[in-house]
Simulated assay, not measured.
Amino acid sequence: MKAEIYDKLTALTDEEIRILNGEQEVNRSLYTDEAKFIIDSNKLLPKGQLINIRKHTRFVHFPEHNHNYIEVSYVYRGTLTQIIGGRKIKLEKGEIIFLNQYITHEIEASGKDDIIINFIIRPEFFDYILTLLDDENVISKFLITTLYKDYESGEYLYFKVLEKREIQRLLERIITELYEPSIMSDAAIKLLVGLLLVELSRNSENIEVYSTNNYEKMIIISIFKYIDESYPKATLGELSEKLKQPNYKLSKLIKKHTGMTFKELLQEKRLSKAAVLLKMSSYSITEIIELVGYENPTYFYKIFEEKYGVTPRKYDK
């Protein structure tokens, strides 16, 4: 790793200096405005940015908390001890843990020689990357559930990959791109993260998987995958045929795990995809309406404005 990046990783941050000078606890206002300790991506990521890195704050215990983003912790040097579901997990140098946005965990205080890099990732970052992985991959299944914010089961993936040179090399390249951004960094980071996930999936024997609720998860993942791939023309009837499950059972499962109906879940997907296309593509609004599966422009404008607070035209600008 470049010397200047290494120096940034090992240097004391302002927060760490305050802790060493006598601050006893984590300053929650740096992480959230809520009474409950839910770390907010808006505190850590610039507006519109989908991924960034942040060195884990040393010398202080992080009490139980959640976050509204995907957190990937990489032990660059030393160790990191997490407590999840009452169980201690001690990550060694070179190891990685993926935490979804519903996991509750606490972190023991790290020492001076412990350098932990946290990747802060909004779930929608993985929308494109999922296309690079096969459906039955353990990482794919983890990522699919992160894209549906109403599926609230805490999950993690723990990768013991110190000896995997290609994985370590990709992690260093991603860190370099994030610390020293260039014009092409956004594209490079997506490509590198995609390659990293492919390499991690090839080493499934080194993955420890945890979920607070495995019951019915496989059916829910299949539902999410179907909507993700077929949202323009998706129907509950077709889904029922594909999964060989009656409509009422699928409707009940969707409501139980997401609090939404199939129609509402499908609408969330279509609107989020329309929002991405408005910002990232050259399609006209009329073309986007058709691409995401709506035939009535007036209805689309109505539900889009209800969700985002502005018309599609203003959102585009």
Rank of each mutant, 00 (worst) to 15 (best):
E108R: 15
I84W: 01
Y102K: 03
I84F: 05
E64F: 01
T146M: 03
L157D: 02
Y128W: 03
T57W: 01
Y76W: 09
R87E: 15
I117N: 09
P63M: 10
N66Y: 05
R77G: 00
N66A: 09
I120L: 10
N137F: 07
T57A: 06
E152W: 01
L132S: 09
I83A: 08
T176P: 00
H56I: 05
I175Q: 02
L162D: 14
I167T: 10
K112I: 11
I174F: 04
L157T: 04
R54S: 08
E95K: 08
I84V: 14
G154C: 05
I84L: 07
H105E: 00
E155S: 12
I103W: 00
R169W: 13
H65R: 06
E95R: 06
I139K: 02
D135W: 10
I129W: 04
G78N: 12
R54H: 03
I97Y: 02
E172C: 01
K90R: 15
I107S: 13
K160C: 06
L143G: 00
H56F: 02
V161I: 14
F119N: 00
Y158S: 01
L171V: 11
I144P: 00
Q168T: 03
Y74M: 04
L132I: 10
K149N: 13
D135G: 09
R169A: 14
T131P: 00
E71D: 02
A109I: 10
R173C: 00
Q82Y: 11
I117W: 02
I121S: 04
L143N: 03
L147C: 09
G86K: 09
P123H: 07
S73L: 13
R77F: 08
R122C: 07
Y148W: 04
K141Q: 12
T79A: 13
D150K: 15
T145N: 07
S153G: 02
L157G: 04
F126C: 05
I84R: 03
I83V: 15
T176Y: 11
E177P: 03
E64G: 08
I139D: 01
Q101W: 01
N118R: 08
V72G: 00
T104G: 03
R173F: 11
H65N: 06
N68Q: 10
S110G: 12
F98G: 03
F119W: 04
T131N: 15
L133H: 12
P63F: 06
Y158T: 00
K160T: 13
G154Y: 05
V138E: 09
I115Q: 07
E166R: 15
K149V: 07
I103L: 12
K93D: 11
R87D: 15
K93N: 14
F98P: 01
G85W: 09
L147V: 06
E64L: 04
L157Q: 05
K93W: 06
I53F: 05
E155W: 07
Q101G: 04
H65L: 05
S110W: 03
P123M: 08
R165Q: 15
E163N: 09
T57P: 00
T146I: 01
